[in-house]
């Protein structure tokens, strides 16, 4: 049973922002509720006010064009993303990530905006968006601003959102016609798992088909917030990705980017070993997934 609360359904962004500001810590912004209501059932994280924003039109729908790229409403569900034909074709790494979230039932309710704003370091939707260079369109009472997703997280479960701000849309530029993407989720079982480690890779190669010309790597559950592994990315630029030893040599650099902690789900030491093994492996998977003309 969920404890009693007052329920608000703002019809506009300004109304949602005003409510969020008014209720502060006593309120919670909810879309699909797959995290929030589960926590409220357990008795902690109780709120006096629930602000349900998923009916707001600006937060709806998936838009795409070659020039503008992809625009995901914050209230778009994970299942809408995994079934979208253009996303499947052009943004496959995002599909690989979101389809590991919860279950079909959870993906039918949970939203991409919720996944981002909950700001869990383990979020399966965030890593792929980080390597796809996504940005967050934020609305506040003072107007709108856009923040790169890599700058959105400020600490464990903390974001740049001010008291009066909500996430409206996530925009993702059109990826190169030929790129390789991969998401690897390490868990102890296949179903209903929270990632002990989540690795996302986006890479491009030069005309020779093997020299790395772009590399973006995101790590989940490897630091207090979802991060980009920038030193490892820099290592790969200009390297021959068809050479397995060259790819695996990054394992000596990856720990300069990551700082996994001990948690009840896994030891930091274990996560460090996994990173050294699995980051190069995910790079190899992404290289293998490269779409070749």
């Amino acid at each position: 049973m969920i404890a009693r609360f007052d329920y608000h359904v703002p019809a506009s962004l300004d109304e949602a922002c005003a409510l969020k500001k008014e209720y502060g810590n006593t309120g919670i912004v909810v879309a699909g509720g797959s995290d929030v209501y589960a926590k409220m059932h357990l008795g902690d994280h109780l709120y006096d006010h629930v602000i349900d924003i998923k009916k707001i039109e600006d937060m709806q729908g998936i838009r795409w064009s070659e020039t503008e790229g992809l625009s995901l409403g914050a209230a778009v569900t994970h299942h809408e993303i995994e079934r979208h034909p253009v996303i499947k074709e052009r943004y496959d790494v995002l599909v690989q990530g979101v389809r590991t979230i919860g279950s079909l039932q959870v993906r039918n309710r949970g939203t991409i905006g919720g996944n981002i704003c909950t700001a869990a370091p383990s979020a399966d939707g965030i890593g792929p968006l980080l390597v796809l260079d996504a940005s967050c369109v934020i609305h506040g009472l003072g107007g709108e601003r856009t923040v790169p997703l890599k700058d959105f997280f400020t600490g464990p479960k903390q974001t740049v959102l001010a008291d009066d701000e909500v996430l409206v849309r996530v925009t993702v530029p059109t990826p190169a016609p030929s790129y390789g993407g991969a998401y690897f989720k390490y868990g102890r079982r296949n179903a209903m798992e929270i990632a002990l480690l989540g690795i996302s890779v986006y890479l491009e190669v030069a005309d020779d088909g093997k020299t790395c010309s772009a590399m973006r790597i995101a790590l989940g559950t490897s630091a207090p917030i979802p991060i980009r592994a920038q030193k490892t990315e820099a290592y790969y630029i200009g390297k021959d990705l068809s050479d397995r030893q060259v790819v695996e040599a990054a394992s000596s650099i990856i720990l300069e980017d990551a700082s996994p902690r001990n948690s009840w789900r896994a030891d930091g030491e274990f996560r460090r070993s996994l990173l050294k093994l699995l980051v190069p492996r995910t790079v190899r998977t992404a290289y293998g997934a490269l779409t070749r003309e």
Binding site: Y7, G33, S34, Y37, A38, H41, Q105, V106, R109
Partner: peptide, 27 residues
């Protein structure tokens, strides 16, 4: 489980399977 793990509460809402324990009746 009341936390979206077990699926015993699954019903279809407009044709889509959801955990009815994680959805409000008003929704």
């Amino acid at each position: 489980c009341n936390e979206g793990e077990c699926g015993a509460c699954t019903v279809l809402v407009d044709g889509k399977p959801v955990n009815s324990c994680l959805m409000l009746a008003v929704e």
